[in-house]
Amino acid sequence: MFHSSMSLVFLLILLLFVKKVFGDSSMMIISGKPKDFTDSYKILESWDNCLRICRNDSNCVMIYKISDTLCEVFQFGEITSVDRSSLASDGVIAFKVKSSFDQCPSDNPFYSSKSISYLNLNETENELYNTTYTYSNGSLDIQYSITKCPNDTQIFIREQLAVCIGLFYFPSPNLCNNQPKASALCKENNGTLTGPANSNEYAYIQAQSQASYNTSNPGKYSYLTYWIDGVSLSGKYNYAFEDPTHNGIANYVWAENCPLYQSAGYCLYNPNAKGYYISDIE
């Protein structure tokens, strides 16, 4: 149990907002002509340069080849349909997809699935942009959606996942509580207790903890700590985790001489909002 002068906050990752993100951006080239769109702009470049420009522009979703030296660019939300009928077979378009391969696939991805999605993280707006291409009846239809993390959370990419991370207080009057209570509270909010999966997440978690100490410290407690994912098993650095996506303790920064215990049943936490280190406690 913690001393009553401590206030604990817990780390919450909302799995409701998890999306799969695959590989790097590639351009898929198919026949067709723009059909339904609200806006676009043209650039005077070779087709190869047009492909590179769209691939490197986070807002670009599709380009249309007007000539060998001119292309039309469509950004997120601007085009909703491409004509792929025989009347448009002489046209060429290219749209952005996520690829986990270094070479072009041997089969058209639309052979195995009627829809292909492209997801793009907008860190500035804390949003995930989703563009879905669906092929049917001689038409390529494009739909758009935006996933935004809840207030007081931040979006991060974990290999093939986009996740929302935030730190929250236990509700009054029980501001001081144990790790099982933190885990239960996370699950009540469609999330799970987690830990830092990389240095960017760790820096964000620490910054939020320190900011909360200065601006949101209820009752001006002497210590403001937070629980993270990890309950010890037998042996040093041997832990059970409820979140499998943060690579265990690989990105945990330990306090001096920690972990303190090598037997089962000890939980991980940060004992000082102004410090950068992790420790364990029963």
Rank of each mutant, 00 (worst) to 15 (best):
Y111N: 12
Y276F: 07
F10Q: 03
C258K: 14
A207N: 15
S7K: 01
A207P: 03
S89K: 14
N151L: 12
G248S: 08
S232D: 03
S99T: 15
Y221V: 09
V73L: 08
A250F: 00
N178P: 00
S117F: 01
F101G: 05
L224W: 02
S139V: 13
K220I: 03
C104R: 08
A250N: 09
N190E: 09
L161N: 12
P150A: 07
R84P: 00
L11A: 09
G275L: 06
S232I: 06
L44T: 15
A273G: 14
Q208T: 07
S26P: 00
F170G: 00
C267W: 06
T38D: 09
S81I: 04
I53N: 11
V9S: 10
P180V: 01
K42Q: 11
N200M: 11
P259M: 07
K98S: 15
Y133A: 01
S172R: 02
P244L: 00
F2N: 01
S46E: 11
F17D: 09
P180F: 02
E188L: 14
N238G: 08
S115D: 02
K42D: 13
Q208D: 02
V21P: 01
H3F: 02
E242Q: 12
A264L: 06
E125L: 14
I53Q: 13
G235E: 01
S99V: 11
E159V: 10
S136M: 11
N214M: 04
T147S: 10
S263I: 12
I63Y: 13
D229Q: 00
S216A: 15
M28A: 15
A211I: 05
Q208C: 03
H3T: 07
T153S: 15
S4C: 01
P105A: 05
G275D: 12
W227C: 03
N178H: 06
Q262R: 15
Q206W: 03
S106R: 11
Y204K: 05
D107L: 09
G166Q: 05
I93W: 07
P218L: 04
G77Q: 02
Y261K: 13
S85R: 10
S216G: 13
Q179S: 10
N174F: 02
V21T: 11
D24G: 07
I30V: 15
G195I: 01
P196E: 05
C186A: 14
G191P: 12
Q262A: 15
F37T: 05
S81H: 04
L233R: 11
P180K: 00
Q143I: 10
I157G: 02
W47K: 00
K181C: 00
N126S: 11
N200F: 13
V18H: 08
E45H: 13
C71Q: 09
Q210V: 04
H3Q: 04
K98V: 03
L8Q: 08
L193Q: 03
P150K: 05
G219Y: 05
S106Q: 10
T245V: 01
L128C: 15
